[in-house]
Computed example of a mutant assay.
Amino acid sequence: MPLQQIVLHPTVNNSIKYASTTVGRDKVYKAVQFFSRFLVWYFKRQGYDKTTIQRYNNLKSTLGISRKLMRFGKPVEHLQHATKALNEVDEITKFTTIAQQLGYATYLFWDTFVWAHNAGVYKFQQIKRINENAHRFWFIGLVFSIIHGLYKLYLNGYQHNFMRQVSKARFAESSEKSNVRSEAESLMKERKAVIIQLVQDVLDITIPATALGYLHLEDGLVGLAGFISSIMGIQSQWKKVNSTK
């Protein structure tokens, strides 16, 4: 039956697998949230009626509150990543990873209070300062994530050049060259993933940087940056969940 074919279609199965992950849902919510932020900015510039603007503003706010609740307990996960990074041999990788994860953990810690305030659970008098602290540590986490990504790109390029030299060596056997080619392909995949994450981080950092006054971007640009970053995150999570190569 057509209905059965639709319900049991592989794309539907993959979508269910994706939606069953917290990260997957968060990326979708984030995409809608920041596109709504862009639309609010656009509608204001175009002189749309207040009802339409308020509708999308409410959508943006509601999704923002929902995402904060979904991240409840997430700081512990980042603390675990920071603890595991203590075993890293490379000192730069260790430092940037720990700093990144501690930044994210602290950001989400403060963000929990922002959620409580916005959801009406408890009204904090110092909510402005709390919000600034959240954005500040988010910014710090992203800065170290970018540094970490750039360092990984450097290491990747160094390893790739080494593999290329080995593959061109006259004394290298055919079996060895085959292994080198395989490792080179793995390095290229890793490089692509690092670049994607770097682009996402650069786009995301405009959000806390603007909130803190480090950058002076219009809401529309910040909304688009967050939306594009979310779409990239959705694609990455989809591939991860559904093992798409």
Rank of each mutant, 00 (worst) to 15 (best):
P2C: 01
L3K: 09
I6N: 01
V7A: 12
L8R: 07
H9C: 13
H9I: 13
N14S: 14
N14T: 05
A19Y: 07
D26S: 04
K27F: 00
A31P: 08
Q33R: 10
F35R: 06
L39Y: 13
V40T: 15
V40L: 13
F43P: 00
G47Q: 06
I53Q: 11
Q54N: 15
Y56M: 10
S61G: 02
T62A: 08
R71D: 02
P75C: 01
P75R: 01
H78T: 08
H81G: 00
T83C: 06
K84E: 15
A85V: 14
L86F: 15
N87M: 10
D90A: 02
T93M: 10
T97S: 11
Q100P: 03
Q100I: 03
Q101P: 03
A105H: 07
A105E: 09
L108G: 01
F113S: 02
V114A: 09
W115H: 02
H117C: 00
G120N: 01
K123L: 06
K123S: 03
Q125L: 05
Q126W: 06
Q126E: 13
N131H: 05
N131T: 14
H135A: 15
F137K: 06
W138F: 09
F139I: 12
G141L: 03
S145G: 07
G149R: 01
K152H: 07
Y154L: 14
N156I: 04
N156M: 02
Y158H: 13
Q165D: 15
V166P: 00
K168T: 04
K168G: 00
A169E: 12
R170T: 14
F171R: 01
E173W: 03
S175P: 00
K177M: 05
S178E: 15
N179L: 12
V180P: 01
R181K: 15
E183F: 06
E183D: 08
E183T: 11
M188D: 12
E190A: 12
R191Y: 07
D201G: 02
V202W: 00
V202K: 01
I205E: 05
I207G: 10
I207Q: 12
I207D: 11
I207H: 11
P208V: 06
A209F: 04
L212Y: 08
G213P: 01
G220A: 14
G223Q: 12
A225F: 11
I228D: 07
G233K: 00
G233A: 01
W238D: 03
K239R: 12
K240A: 10
